[in-house]
Computed example of a mutant assay.
Amino acid sequence: MDKGIFFLLAILGGVSLAMQGGLNAQLGVQLKSSILASLVAFVFSAFFALLLVLALTRTSMDFNLYRKVPAYLWFSGAFFSVIGICLYYYTIPKLGISTMISLGLFGQLLFATIAGHFGWFGLPNEPLATNRALGIFAMALGIFLMNKN
């Protein structure tokens, strides 16, 4: 498959995350609780994910495979997802969606660059090179300019 398709899918994923952040932040405002909005979002996310699994899974479930998964992998990603999502829903109404998303993306990029450099989480190493460092600097400068009053 052409790499351009993956670029477009990644952009679509980013648009979807920004949309859900804005919509669920408003849900949190209406409910007067960003944590309750997060719970609602995760319950419905689980439901929609279940529908996708049922619709797209072509093979039977291999429970022996599931037993081999380290225990921490069953919950650690969800734990950080709840923290991140709750913080998004809490800060979007206070900062605005473009400010929150730009700062959130910068945090993701910074952490991903460090994690990629060291090959954390068993993922491929992506050494920090000059072009990556310049890209992070450019993004930081762009965020500063976007948020300068």
Rank of each mutant, 00 (worst) to 15 (best):
Gly84Arg: 09
Val15Arg: 09
Ile143Arg: 03
Lys3Thr: 12
Ala129Tyr: 08
Leu8Asn: 09
Thr113Gly: 06
Ile5His: 04
Arg67Gly: 11
Phe111Ser: 14
Ala25Met: 04
Ala18Ser: 08
Val53Pro: 00
Ser76Gln: 08
Gly77Gln: 05
Ser60Pro: 08
Ala49Ser: 03
Gly22Pro: 03
Met61Asn: 08
Tyr66Arg: 11
Met139Tyr: 14
Phe79His: 05
Met19Cys: 13
Asn64Gly: 07
Ile11Met: 12
Ala55Pro: 03
Glu126Leu: 14
Gln108Val: 09
Asp62Met: 00
Ser76Gly: 04
Ser38Asp: 15
Tyr66Val: 14
Asn125Asp: 10
Ala112Pro: 06
Ala10Thr: 14
Leu87His: 04
Ile143Cys: 02
Lys94Pro: 00
Leu105Ile: 12
Leu65Val: 10
Leu65Thr: 14
Lys3Ile: 13
Pro124Glu: 00
Lys68Tyr: 10
Gly22Asn: 04
Val82Met: 06
Leu39Gly: 10
Ile97Lys: 05
Asp2Pro: 11
Val43Thr: 12
Gly84Ala: 12
Leu103Trp: 11
Gly104Asn: 04
Ala115Tyr: 09
Leu17Asn: 04
Met1Ser: 13
Phe47Ala: 08
Asn125Phe: 12
Phe7Asn: 09
Gln26Lys: 13
Phe42Gly: 01
Phe111Trp: 12
Leu123Phe: 05
Ala55Lys: 05
Met100Ser: 11
Ala78Glu: 03
Leu123Trp: 00
Phe42Asn: 04
Ile85Cys: 05
Gly77Leu: 09
Gly4Ala: 13
Ile11Val: 14
Ile5Met: 08
Lys148Val: 14
Thr113Asp: 06
Pro70Ile: 05
Met61Ile: 15
Gly116Arg: 02
Pro70Asp: 04
Lys68Asn: 15
Gln108Phe: 05
Gly4Arg: 11
Leu8Cys: 14
Ser33Phe: 00
Thr99Ala: 15
Ala49Arg: 02
Met19Glu: 08
Tyr90His: 14
Phe63Val: 03
Gln108Ala: 12
Gly96Ala: 10
Leu50Trp: 10
Ala49Met: 09
Gly122Ile: 05
Gly13Glu: 11
Ala25His: 03
Asn131Leu: 13
Phe48Asp: 03
Phe42Tyr: 11
Ala138Val: 04
Phe118Leu: 15
Ala10Tyr: 08
Ile11Arg: 09
Phe63His: 02
Gly13Thr: 13
Val43Leu: 11
Met139Asp: 10
Thr57Leu: 13
Phe42Glu: 00
Gly14Pro: 01
Ser16Ala: 15
